[in-house]
Design a protein around this nucleic acid. Structure first.
Lengths: 250, 250
DNA sequence: GCCAATCCTTATGTATACGTTATCTGCCTT
DNA sequence: AAGGCAGATAACGTATACATAAGGATTGGC
C-alpha cells in the first residue's frame, strides 16, 4: 500500500523551512514560498509593513500574483492585510501562540490516533524509531537545535501517515505559525529528556495499534510541551490581546 | 429555511447557509458568498464545470475577483480547479465526508473543552438550553428538518463561545463541506432521541465547567453521530477514493 | 483504417490600466 | 489655537489586455 514514499512527503505538513531553490513554479507560488520563507527565517521581521507595489517590486513581479500570495499568507496568519495600510508581518503575541497551539495539538492528536488505527509498516516504524534514536543522541549531547529539527520531523512524519489529506493540509497551514514560536524559544529550551520519553510511549502505542493509548500519550505530550513552550514565551513576548490577527479591528 | 437569525457571531462558524441579501461587499466577497451559496443549496450541482470566464459572466464580474473567490472555495474543498479544464463543483464521496468529519469533530471537541474551561454566562446557558428545549419539541413532532437546523445552531453557538478565533475560523472553513453531507442525509435521519440526550449531557458538563466530562461527552456524541451519518451515506454515495479533492491528479 | 504529428483555438496566468475611496495635509473658520 | 472641512495624492480593487501553453482536431502518412 503505502510502503516506499510514505514519509518524505512531509511537504504536506512541513512546507518549506528552507527554500527549495526557486524552482520553476507559477509566479504566484514563487511569491508565496518566497515571502513565507522570508517571514519564517526572520528576514522579514514581525511588524514589517510593505505595500502591494513594494512587494511586487521586491519580487520582480506584478501585483496580481503577489496579491494572491499575500491573501494566502494572511489566511495562514503570517501577515495582516489592511487595505491602504499595507501588508504587515504579524508579530506573534502570547495569545496568538496559545490559539495556534490549541488548534495544532487538537489536530495532531487526532492524526496520531488515526495512525494508530491504521498501523505502521515495518519500514515506517523503523524510520520513526530511527528518528527517536538520533534525537536521544542529540539530547545526550545537549544539541537542542538539531534535536528540535528532528522533533519537527518526527511529528510531521507521524502526521503524514494519518491518511487524512485534509487533516494534513490544515495542519500544514498552521505549521508556519507554530514554527515561528518554536524558533523563538529554541535557545531557552531545557534538555528534552521528558519529550524523548513521551515520544517513545507514543510510538509504542501507535505501533501496538492501541488507538486509545496513542491518543492519550500524545495528548499528555502536547499538553505538557505546549504548556512549557507558553511558559518560556511568557517572558519574551507581549501578552497581546489577539494582536493583528486579520479580522476586523480598526 | 433558516429561522430566527440565531443570535450573534455564528458567522464565524456558520458562514451563510443563506445569502444575507447580496449586501454591498467587495466584488470578490460577493462572488465568494454567491458561489458558496449556490453550491451549498445545490443550485450549482456537484460535477458542474465552469470556466473562469463563464463564472465571471454568471456573476457579471471580471475574472479577477471571481478567480480569487474560486481559489478560496477550492481551499475549502467545495470546488476543484483544474487548469484549462475549468472549475468543477466537488461531489462528495464517502471518503471525503469521512475526512471532513474527522477534522471537524476533532476541532469541535476541542472547542467544547475550551468552553467548559471558560464557563457559561447565565444568558449563554439560557440560550443553549432554550435551543435544546425547542429541539426536543421538534423531536417529539418528528420534524427532523427543523431539528437539524437547531442542531447546527446548537453546535455553532457552542463553538462561538470557545474564545479561540483561529479555531472558529478553521471550523468555519470546514462547515460548508459538513453542511453538504448533512443535507444529503437529512431525509434519511432517524428520530434523534439519542442526540437530544447527549446534547443535554454536553451542556451540563460545560455548565459545570467540567472540562474532562465535556470533552468526553462531546467525543462520544460526535463519534456516534458521525458513524451514523457515514452509515446513512454509505448507501447513497460512491465510496470514492478521495475524489477530485484538489491536489495533483491531472 | 489507424496512428501520429502539427496547427489552431482558447483558457489561464500575468501584467497593466483605470476608477474609486481613504488618508493625510493644509487652510480656514470659530 | 484648535478643530473641521476640503482637496490632493496614491493604494487598492477591479477590469482588461496580452502572451503562453495546453488540448483538441484535422490531415497526412504508413
Amino acid at each position: 500500500m503505502k510502503a516506499g514514499r510514505a514519509f518524505r512527503s512531509n511537504r504536506a505538513t512541513r512546507p518549506h523551512p528552507v527554500l527549495p531553490g526557486s524552482e520553476d513554479m507559477p509566479a504566484r507560488e514563487r511569491a508565496y514560498h518566497d515571502l513565507r520563507y522570508r517571514i519564517l527565517t526572520g528576514r522579514l521581521a514581525p511588524g514589517t509593513t510593505l505595500l502591494e507595489t513594494e512587494l511586487a517590486a521586491l519580487l520582480s513581479l506584478s501585483r496580481t500574483p503577489v496579491r494572491e500570495a499575500a491573501i494566502k499568507l494572511a489566511e495562514e496568519g503570517l501577515v495582516n492585510i489592511r487595505a491602504r495600510h499595507g501588508i504587515t508581518v504579524c508579530d506573534l503575541s502570547l495569545c496568538d501562540v496559545a490559539e495556534v497551539l490549541d488548534v495544532f495539538s487538537a489536530l495532531e492528536i487526532r492524526a496520531v490516533a488515526l495512525v494508530a488505527r491504521r498501523g505502521l509498516s515495518h519500514g515506517e516504524h523503523n524510520h520513526l524509531s530511527g528518528l527517536l534514536d538520533r534525537m536521544e543522541r542529540y539530547t545526550a549531547n545537549g544539541n537542542i537545535v538539531r534535536w528540535s529539527d528532528l522533533d519537527d520531523d518526527f511529528h510531521s512524519s507521524m502526521v503524514s501517515l494519518c491518511g487524512n489529506a485534509r487533516l494534513q493540509r490544515t495542519l500544514g497551514e498552521y505549521w508556519g505559525q507554530q514554527f515561528r514560536a518554536r524558533m523563538l524559544i529554541l535557545p531557552l529550551r531545557p534538555v528534552p529528556h521528558q519529550s524523548d520519553k513521551e515520544h517513545r510511549e507514543i510510538l509504542a502505542a501507535v505501533h501496538a495499534r492501541d488507538e486509545e493509548a496513542a491518543r492519550h500519550a500524545h495528548e499528555r505530550h502536547r499538553a505538557r510541551a505546549d504548556a512549557q513552550q507558553l511558559a518560556l514565551l511568557k517572558n519574551h513576548l507581549p501578552p497581546g490581546d489577539s494582536t493583528d490577527s486579520q479580522e476586523d479591528m480598526r
